[in-house]
Design a protein around this nucleic acid. Sequence first.
DNA 1: AATATATTTTCCAATATTGGAAAAATAAAG
DNA 2: CTTTATTTTTCCAATATTGGAAAATATATT
Lengths: 316, 316
Amino acid sequence: MAQPSVSSYLRMQEVKRAMIEDSNPTNRVLDVLSFLAAHPAETFTLAEIARQVGLSTGSAHRVLTTMAKAQFLARDEKRRTYSLGVAMVAAGQAAIEKYRGVDIARREIAKLAAELDVQCSASTVTAGELMVLVKEGAPKSHMALTRVGERRPLIPPVGLCHVAWAGEAAIEAYIGKVDFYLSETVRKHLHDTFPLIRRRGYSISVTGPNAGHALQAMTLPIGRAPDAEYWTNLYELIGKIMPDEVQLFDLAGADETGIGHITAPVFAPDGTVAMQLVMIGMARKLGARDIEHYAERLCATAALITSEMHGRVPKG
Amino acid sequence: MAQPSVSSYLRMQEVKRAMIEDSNPTNRVLDVLSFLAAHPAETFTLAEIARQVGLSTGSAHRVLTTMAKAQFLARDEKRRTYSLGVAMVAAGQAAIEKYRGVDIARREIAKLAAELDVQCSASTVTAGELMVLVKEGAPKSHMALTRVGERRPLIPPVGLCHVAWAGEAAIEAYIGKVDFYLSETVRKHLHDTFPLIRRRGYSISVTGPNAGHALQAMTLPIGRAPDAEYWTNLYELIGKIMPDEVQLFDLAGADETGIGHITAPVFAPDGTVAMQLVMIGMARKLGARDIEHYAERLCATAALITSEMHGRVPKG
DNA sequence: AATATATTTTCCAATATTGGAAAAATAAAG
DNA sequence: CTTTATTTTTCCAATATTGGAAAATATATT
């Protein structure tokens, strides 16, 4: 401690070491793309994007003009607003070549959403994270909890269908992430959830403020890893979730609360869950028969996509 | 010249002014995305991408790991390669919401490409540039001149269908860009081309080395504006193009050379050309009837897409 | 029309990023 | 198993980028 210069040198090294794996300018670009992808219907001014993404107006100016010049963003000269550009369409189309199932899913859930007047989305799991790939259907009220491109950690109560067919070890690991924060009742409920999902072929939950809050707190930031506060806050909210918000066992018991979402699995050729279809925005006050009807339609769509992807439902 | 410090200051200012509108770190990210989008079927190592995009390995390392961490790139840990990731799929799907015609076009040209065993692509014009949005169909031989996401300036002989219905002023401006470099014969041929395209409803050309070379020299770089050499070289190559490489007037005269491409317009609701469909890779040694058959099929697909987009063919 | 409000663009010192080289880690060949 | 050839990762001085404030421009309001 007698040599401040050495101390400060070490501190700098430490800081550098912490950032060495991340390129901030790169994350800025990805942040902008992610933000605009999450709000595809809207257009934004430079100042709005700068605020939302956490850039200074100066930096945002250069980043956005550069992206617009390359056609990755479209600029409306009259309104001075930005939105996703044609180069993103091109790059996205190219990416789809690698993820063939996605456009099949998009086509089918668009049909379903239009037909039943609900909102449908599809998500996948990569690197232990759940990402929303597609969303179709007019948004009702304030149910826009999921945005395209958003990522969430794969922990209860999200991604149940991704886990349900992944084997006992994966299920235990999944529960284990929040085990400590759950009441005995919910823990038991969660354990019983997976056999039920496999038997039914879909997952279902009721609406509730607790699950809603947890979902909102779950969105992962692009560049930086979530900090300790993120996890503390999240675990606390997850601890408050009610059993029915995780999984609705008795379909007749939803009269009052209303259905939060129904999700169904799309299987890949290797029998793993490739995508999870999510349906939200159903009418309230549904009877058990009505609910089953929605679920059956979602499962039928999931089965169709599975089939078109040459997917295979695992035995068991 | 007596004050070097002032001189160097001014020079710096000048340099800064020239770059003030462009963010290099941003362009790096877009370059990587564009490169990978242009080769959607392949995967690349860090070193390969660094070479192709012109980055130092050090920078490439940070950029690529950052992009991979955000799921914009997918990393194959075993082979240590990168390709487009799921976040790009998500962002692309979001972008499509703004450009509804594109996925309709994709679906239809995929059908057409499979059915006729040819390669089809769709391009659009933004900010005076032509961009390839979609490409479908197995590549034959070395006809992979167009890559998804690639941009070309809208000058003869590319984008004829985009211009043919844009009015006399646009046509004159279009021809004017290369007017000086054309022989009298080709200039006349080019002027006669547009009424013919409108009458036929499509554009058609024969294969030829001159047009091929010009096309290859045309690809625009992402970040930097093309330099003087780019234009000099390009104009020289365009000057060498033969009339039939621009437009084939007599369909019976293609026996020997073979058809280069056929293109047809997709119209937007406002009657402008929204996209240009391009068909390449047809069998060689075709008679006039065979050629017409291909053209009719392409035009039928273009008409279908126009219809699904609620587009309208302009009167005239 | 004039004022107020908001947004875009420019500028420069402070600072984070880059390129290049060298080290570590792999993969391939002997 | 050892050596050779690549590729990936780390490091630091050189340098290009950033944030913040202020100027210019546009939009809304009185």
